[in-house]
């Protein structure tokens, strides 16, 4: 299966700026969390999305609040691309009462159902059936919404991959399965763990379209997602898109990444960076000026600083919150 390359397409100026801003927000948010975590300030553990920005942004560029996404343990990028509030996200990662989930979910469970963000998920493979359920609601209520299931290469070997995609396919649900193949499930290479060359090859078994795209090329992701989402909205059922990508950090913060070679890391972090490539694209195609891009970068930096400040100055939840929201009524 050939890797689909981006062709010349017309992004509106507005959309282009939005995409660049979201990619910057994700990168700067994650770099900041990396820095804060290394100071030992954050409780628990975090999985960073830096390096994979083109996937979340290229897909979510087509979505509105009425559309749903399910996410993974590496979910910060999906949240930002789905317009979750970064102050609330940062506060959540700090375990503060002002967090999007009032400090009860943490990094692995950030959610904002009002934005269609059905949650990061601590269970690898957890998202497949959940996206199917959101797609079922969309179909039965005829809302025109779609559900996107982001998942990693590790999840593609999980049983729920099969059950979820098969269900979406037989019921022709408006679901888009987006594999983020970053090459490693924790420290285990994709090639070792998966019997297929491409995750997208598995689409054939469900009689649905499967497509491999360069996950470092936000335009390529944008185009593939556009095709899949149109298909879904037209009632033609699910699509499986595999984005070949790379995570700049380890599986979790503190991972020494001994399984990655130095050459590989340098190649991805320096030559193949999705944000650098998109920046060039925007300038060459005169979609943004150097000044506009610099302004975005600076305003994002300020917003992330503000988010940290907000989180650090927010109160922790109190004892009375412990038993709240276990049930609607009990």
């Amino acid at each position: 299966m050939a890797v689909a390359r981006s062709q010349s397409i017309v992004l509106t100026k507005e959309k282009a700026k939005w995409m660049y801003q979201k990619m910057q927000e994700i990168r700067q948010f994650e770099d900041k969390v990396h820095e804060i975590f290394s100071r030992g300030v954050l409780p628990g553990f975090v999985h960073l999305y830096a390096g994979e920005e083109a996937v979340a942004v290229g897909v979510c560029a087509h979505l509105t609040e009425k559309d749903y996404i399910t996410s993974t343990h590496r979910g910060h990028g999906h949240c930002i691309a789905k317009e979750c509030d970064v102050n609330g996200m940062m506060a959540e990662i700090y375990g503060k009462a002002t967090g999007l989930c009032k400090g009860k979910g943490g990094s692995m469970h950030i959610a904002d159902v009002s934005k269609g963000m059905l949650g990061a998920n601590g269970i690898v493979g957890g998202g497949f059936p959940l996206a199917v359920g959101a797609g079922l609601t969309a179909k039965l209520k005829k809302t025109g919404s779609v559900a996107v299931c982001f998942f990693g290469d590790g999840a593609n070997n999980h049983g729920t991959f099969h059950e979820g995609i098969n269900l979406a396919a037989i019921w022709k649900l408006p679901v888009i399965f987006v594999a983020e193949n970053n090459g490693y499930a924790e420290s285990t290479p994709f090639e070792y763990a998966s019997s297929c060359r491409n995750i997208a090859d598995r689409a054939a078994a469900y009689n649905i379209p499967g497509e491999v795209v360069d996950g470092k090329d936000v335009i390529a992701v944008y185009e593939a997602a556009k095709r899949a989402i149109e298909r879904a909205r037209n009632g033609e059922g699910p699509t499986l898109i595999e984005c070949k990508t790379y995570r700049n950090y380890g599986h979790f913060e503190g991972d020494a990444q001994t399984y990655k070679s130095l050459e590989e890391k340098q190649k991805h972090l320096q030559e193949l960076d999705a944000i650098v490539k998109f920046r060039e694209y925007l300038l060459v195609n005169q979609l943004c000026s150097e000044q506009e891009l610099a302004e975005i970068e600076q305003s994002v930096a300020k917003a992330i600083e503000k988010a940290v400040e907000f989180a650090e100055n927010s109160p922790f939840p109190t004892e009375e919150d412990l038993l709240r929201d276990v049930y609607v009524s009990y």
């Binding site: 749903y68 059905l118 059936p129 996206a131 359920g133 959101a134 609601t137 729920t160 099969h162 269900l167």
Partner: peptide, 26 residues
Amino acid sequence: RERVLDTPIAEAGYIGAAVTAAATGL
């Protein structure tokens, strides 16, 4: 059959789908 849905023998798939079908309005 739109409201009485036969499922494949795939409990993780359809029970999981029912969870978010509930969370999103059914």
